[in-house]
Design a protein around this nucleic acid. Structure first.
Lengths: 336, 336
DNA sequence: TAATTTTGCGCAAACGATTGCGCTAATTAA
DNA sequence: TTAATTAGCGCAATCGTTTGCGCAAAATTA
């Protein structure tokens, strides 16, 4: 079980490493290798436990069979799910995934991308952080690259994401249909495209409904704290909201905490709807209605497009927003 | 921004690639390279955007600066957290992480390990699945390898895990102190060492307390379903448990679902304690008391031991069980 | 001035695989 | 019998680094 090389197998079998290489790569037929040779080489390489050295192979063939995946926080279940799908699909196509966690640090992201290129990954999938698409934009001319979840509308970088506008629109529609006319929407960072799209969807839903619903959009972070603070502020006001739309499941947790502290009941005292799907949302009291992003579809679409681009060596082109779905539970009260 | 090699830089600067390599590796001093040369080479390599080819470097130096991480399911938050810590710590030490998700499939695990070796990773961290340590045991003689979370007590493979016995013991202690004497413990698979250790801790806690508490240990899977079914069965019995100990947070969700369906209140009707920490457990109604595994410590210890072993090129030796902590909430009723 | 040391750098052989081209012997065709 | 074809395989270059060894020129010492 020591380490063997092609030369070793060649020496043992008496054939050249050329022949050995060809046999081991399944090119025996096209290279007209005799049956004897194939058998002997196969046998010896089994017996010796020969293992291909992928590194040498990469150097020579310029193909690493590796996908680079760059995410802001792998500990975030949303990104973990994305990663899971990417890894699984990549593996089925014979690719392995190298993962870097940027922790929302743009500088770390730049380094990560450099590392990926230095290791000559065949393609890169990024959930970008920061608001400067420059590095990525220039990189995506040199190596197949695709963004997921987050993207830069003004830059020409392929992406697959949720149709956040639609998600915001439909969530708001749900609230309007139930007669809510004072809605608090707690959003993410100002620079977040996904957050802003959701908000835009809300506004349009109201406008198109002809309803006189008052929507107040507050907050600036996808965090528990932000959800907590904004909820505290809102329920202290003279005219508290009848419904709260949390733009992420972390924000939702903050909302819940504040409501619990004030002994406010969902949905009797205030209705709640959230973005992002999580199993535990069904085990809250009551289960929370939410907009579910098509995580698996997004990841699958992205990795498949990427693998295609790698295979065909052609420029990747994609501006895809996939529709979310509604997970209907019991957190929205119907106001007559 | 094209691809340049050492030769290119050598040609442009007029120095040999030997000198260029030395300068770029910070060996200018020890190789007595002149200041001029260093400056010129540095400048040119900046200007041309020269990027080292890690693959060639790996081939030559036999060092890949890569850690292989093999987990059963990266979408499981527990493993995602482990991965997060491993990735972050590895990166600080200049290592990158290649991740394979085995989906609890031992054959996939074997392949994964082969792939890792072929790519000459410098070290491997595995959360093993299946009950056959043979592959891993033989592998760990050839490359630094360490198990986390799960391990094989009888095999001589280094590991870092939770002190599951202690966790089970203390959870049970908590229930005993509150006067519970009919406890339902819903466990994981029969072959799971972690599950079994937790159960053993429970039994010992009762034995050592001199209490006549009746512990009934049921179930065979770390799944929501298992938790649900076993809870259904138990609360239908003539003598339902006064407390339920869920040996994982997935099992807990099943427990909650069953209790909700029967309108049973926590902790008034039945007390609950669980293994595994999750943010959302604090947002349940009521927040659930739980045994928190020292995930970060485990991962940090493991990666550091691994990096040490890699650096010192010495055999890794570790049988470490780290104590869990108790996150005390309001899900256990004190029975007078 | 001659001998020694130091400075500054390059040659060329690895690392382990892949592959275009070519070569010999055997077979077939003419 | 000779020419053409085919079968079966190997040579050697290549991928882009790293590094042991050595060598000439400059600086120092004797």
């Amino acid at each position: 079980m020591e380490k063997h090389t092609l030369d070793d197998i060649a020496r043992i079998t008496g054939y050249s490493k050329t022949t050995v290489s060809r046999v081991l790569n399944g090119k025996a037929a096209s290279a007209r290798i005799s049956k004897q040779a194939v058998e002997k080489i196969m046998k010896v390489s089994k017996d010796t436990g020969y293992q291909l050295n992928s590194v040498a192979q990469m150097l020579r063939s310029k193909v690493s069979k590796t996908i680079g995946l760059v995410v802001p926080y792998i500990s975030n279940p949303f990104f973990a799910n994305l990663a899971s799908t990417v890894i699984t699909n990549a593996r089925q196509a014979g690719y392995i995934v190298t993962l870097i966690d940027t922790m929302e640090n743009p500088e770390a992201e730049r380094q990560a991308l450099n590392t990926m290129v230095a290791r000559s990954v065949d393609g890169i999938i990024v959930v970008p952080c920061g608001d400067d698409p420059a590095t990525i934009a220039s990189l995506c001319k040199r190596v197949p690259l695709i963004l997921i979840d987050r993207y830069y509308p003004e830059a020409d970088i392929p992406y697959v994401s949720t149709d956040n506008y639609d998600g915001g629109y439909r969530a708001m529609q749900l609230l309007l249909e139930s007669g809510h006319n004072r809605v608090l929407c707690i959003k993410g960072p100002d620079v977040s495209v996904t957050s802003n799209e959701r908000v835009r969807g809300c506004h349009d839903a109201i406008a198109r409904s002809g309803n006189n619903c008052r929507l107040s959009v507050v907050g600036n972070d996808f965090s528990v704290q932000n959800g907590y603070i904004e909820t505290q502020l809102a329920i202290g006001a003279k005219q508290p909201p009848t419904a709260i739309f949390a733009l992420s499941s972390t924000i939702l947790l903050g909302v819940l905490k504040a409501l619990n502290e004030h002994k406010l009941n969902i949905p009797d005292d205030v209705s709640v709807i959230s973005f992002d799907d999580n199993t535990y949302l069904d085990y809250l009291n009551p289960p929370v209605t939410r907009i579910k992003q098509p995580v698996t579809d997004i990841a699958e679409t992205a990795i498949n497009l990427l693998l295609q681009a790698i295979a065909k060596k052609e420029q990747l082109q994609a501006n895809i927003c996939m529709a979310p779905s509604i997970v209907l539970r019991n957190s929205i009260k119907h106001l007559h």
